[in-house]
Measured scan of single mutants.
Amino acid sequence: ETIMEVNLLKGPKGLGFSIAGGIGNQHIPGDNSIYITKIIEGGAAQKDGRLQIGDRLLAVNNTNLQDVRHEEAVASLKNTSDMVYLKVAKP
């Protein structure tokens, strides 16, 4: 597993990826991690090219996303300014 830091500039459609996982909404049984499950065509993440489906999202800005509820992860992604710092684990 490789840890990678990505600074992503939000586009008109936001960050351009979808997530799944978290406490109460496990993407993988027994694993509370938050995973990237979709990269949106023409979105910021696709244009940047570094994020991939299956990457594990560890942090957004200063918010640690390990062992959080799905709703908390979504809220932390929404409550960001235009430049967003992401910390991901690549499988």
Rank of each mutant, 00 (worst) to 15 (best):
Thr2Pro: 04
Ile3Trp: 05
Ile3Cys: 05
Ile3Tyr: 06
Met4Thr: 08
Met4Glu: 06
Asn7Thr: 07
Asn7Trp: 04
Asn7Pro: 07
Asn7Ile: 05
Leu9Asp: 08
Leu9Ala: 14
Lys10Pro: 06
Gly11Gln: 08
Gly11Leu: 05
Gly11Tyr: 08
Pro12Cys: 06
Pro12Glu: 11
Pro12Asn: 10
Lys13Leu: 09
Lys13Pro: 04
Gly14Tyr: 02
Leu15Glu: 01
Leu15Asp: 01
Leu15Phe: 03
Leu15Thr: 08
Gly16Lys: 01
Phe17Ser: 00
Ser18Asn: 07
Ser18Val: 12
Ser18Pro: 01
Ile19Val: 14
Ile19Trp: 13
Ile19Glu: 00
Ile19Thr: 08
Ala20Lys: 12
Gly21Val: 02
Gly21Trp: 02
Gly21Pro: 03
Gly21Thr: 03
Ile23Glu: 05
Ile23Met: 08
Ile23Pro: 05
Gly24Arg: 12
Asn25Tyr: 11
Asn25Ala: 11
Asn25Trp: 08
Asn25Cys: 14
Gln26Thr: 14
Ile28Gln: 11
Ile28Met: 13
Pro29Gln: 15
Pro29Ala: 12
Gly30Cys: 13
Asp31Asn: 10
Asp31Ile: 04
Asp31Leu: 03
Asn32Ala: 08
Asn32Glu: 08
Ser33Asn: 14
Ser33Pro: 03
Ser33Lys: 04
Ile34Val: 11
Ile34Trp: 03
Ile34Gln: 03
Ile34Met: 12
Tyr35Asn: 02
Ile36Met: 02
Thr37Cys: 15
Thr37Ser: 12
Lys38Ser: 15
Ile39Thr: 04
Ile39Arg: 01
Ile40His: 12
Ile40Cys: 10
Gly42Tyr: 08
Gly43Ile: 00
Gly43Pro: 00
Ala44Arg: 08
Ala44Thr: 14
Ala45Gly: 04
Ala45Thr: 09
Lys47Tyr: 15
Asp48Ala: 07
Gly49Ile: 02
Gly49Met: 04
Gly49Asp: 11
Arg50Ile: 06
Arg50Tyr: 04
Arg50Met: 09
Leu51Ser: 01
Leu51Gln: 00
Gln52Ala: 07
Gln52His: 15
Gly54Asp: 04
Gly54Ile: 00
Gly54Val: 00
Asp55Tyr: 13
Arg56Asp: 00
Arg56Glu: 05
Leu57Pro: 00
Leu57Ala: 01
Leu57His: 00
Leu58Pro: 00
Leu58Ile: 14
Ala59Gln: 13
Ala59Glu: 10
Val60Phe: 04
Val60Thr: 03
Asn61Thr: 03
Asn62Gln: 04
Thr63Ile: 15
Asn64Ser: 07
Leu65Tyr: 05
Leu65Trp: 03
Gln66Tyr: 08
Asp67Met: 09
Asp67Leu: 08
Asp67Lys: 03
Asp67Val: 09
Asp67Glu: 11
Asp67Thr: 15
Val68Trp: 06
Val68Leu: 12
Val68Met: 10
Arg69Ile: 08
Arg69Gly: 13
His70Ser: 06
His70Tyr: 14
His70Arg: 06
Glu71Gly: 09
Glu72Arg: 09
Glu72Thr: 12
Val74Gly: 06
Ala75Ser: 09
Ala75Glu: 15
Ser76Cys: 15
Ser76Asp: 11
Leu77Ile: 15
Leu77Glu: 01
Lys78Cys: 07
Lys78Gln: 12
Asn79Thr: 14
Asn79Gly: 12
Asn79Ile: 15
Asn79Ser: 15
Asn79Tyr: 09
Thr80Lys: 12
Thr80His: 14
Thr80Cys: 11
Thr80Trp: 06
Thr80Ile: 14
Thr80Tyr: 03
Ser81Met: 11
Asp82Lys: 09
Asp82Glu: 03
Asp82Arg: 11
Met83Ala: 11
Met83Asp: 14
Val84Leu: 13
Tyr85Ser: 12
Leu86Ser: 01
Leu86Tyr: 00
Lys87Leu: 03
Lys87Asn: 09
Val88Met: 08
Val88Lys: 01
Ala89Thr: 06
Lys90Asn: 04
Lys90Met: 12
Pro91Glu: 12
Pro91Asp: 08
Pro91Phe: 02
